[in-house]
Amino acid sequence: MLSELKELYRYRELLWTFVVRELRIRYKNSVLGFFWSILNPLITVLVMTVVFKYVLNVRVPNYSAYLLAAYLPFMFFQLALLDSAQSILTQLPLLKKIYFPREILPIGSVIANFLHFLLAMGVFFLYLLFVWWMNPGENPFRATVFWLPLLVLLQFCLTLGLALFISALNTFYEDVKYLVSVGLYLLFFLCPILYFVEQVWAATHSPDIPAQWQDTLFTIYNLNPIGMLLVGYRKLMLDPQPITVTRTGDVLETHYLPLDWTMLAIAGAVSVLVMVAGYAYFNKVKWRFVERP
C-alpha cells in the first residue's frame, strides 16, 4: 500500500489538474455557474423551512440553521458518492489508452465535491453571522465549533472510502449505482436532518418501549457513522435542543442531550477504517477495470 501511495503522490499534479477540470466542467454552460452549488441547498432549505415551520408547525427557533448544519454535509456525502460511482466508467476509453493511477478519478470526484462543500459551509457561517447581527445577544456559534475541522476531515475519510468501494464495484456491476442512489435516499430519512436526534432519544425512551432496551436502541441508531457525524455537526456548532417530558400538557422536566463523544469517536474510527479498506480494495481490483468484458 505504501508504494501505491508513493505513486499517487508522484501523480499529485494530475490529481489537481483533474479536480480543476471537474470544477470547470460542471457549470461550464450555465449562466449562474458556481453559484448553483450554493443556490441549490439554499432553495431546498428554504422550502423545507416553510413546510416544517408553517405547515407542520415545528416550533424551533432558527430551524433553518439546524437544517443547513446537517443538510450541507449530507449533500456533500450524497453528491460525492453519486459522482464517483460513474467516475471510472465514463473515463474507460482513456483508461484503455494510457497509464495513470486509477484512484485519481474517484478521489478527484470526491475532492471536487468537497471544495463545493467548503464553499457552502463558508456561506452558512455568513448566514449565522447575519442572524446574529439581526438578533444580537446570543453567540452565533458555540465554542466547540473549533472541533469542526476534525469532524470535516473524518467525514472526508468516510466519503472517500465509500467512493473508492462504489466506483470500483460499479465498474464491474452497473447495478451498484442504482443501489447507491436508493440507499442514499433512504439514508436521508434515517439520519437526523429533517428532525432532531433529541426526538429520536425521546422516541426510544417512550414508556411503550421496555426500559432495558431503551438505551440499546438509541445506541444502535447512533452507530450509523454518517448519522452520528451529522449529529456532531449540529451539536458542535449550534445550541442543543431541549427535551421536554410532558404529561397531559404539564411540563414535567426539561433536559439537554449532550454530544456523545464516545459514539462520535466510534463513528470517526469507522470512517478511517472505511477509507483504508476502500483504498486497499480499489488497489486490488484496479488493474481489472480495463479488462471488463
Binding site: 477540470r21 476509453p93 482513456l94
Partner: peptide
Amino acid sequence: LELGAGFHPDL
C-alpha cells in the same frame, strides 16, 4: 492518443 481521447468537449 486516438483522436481526442482524453479531450473534454466542453473545455
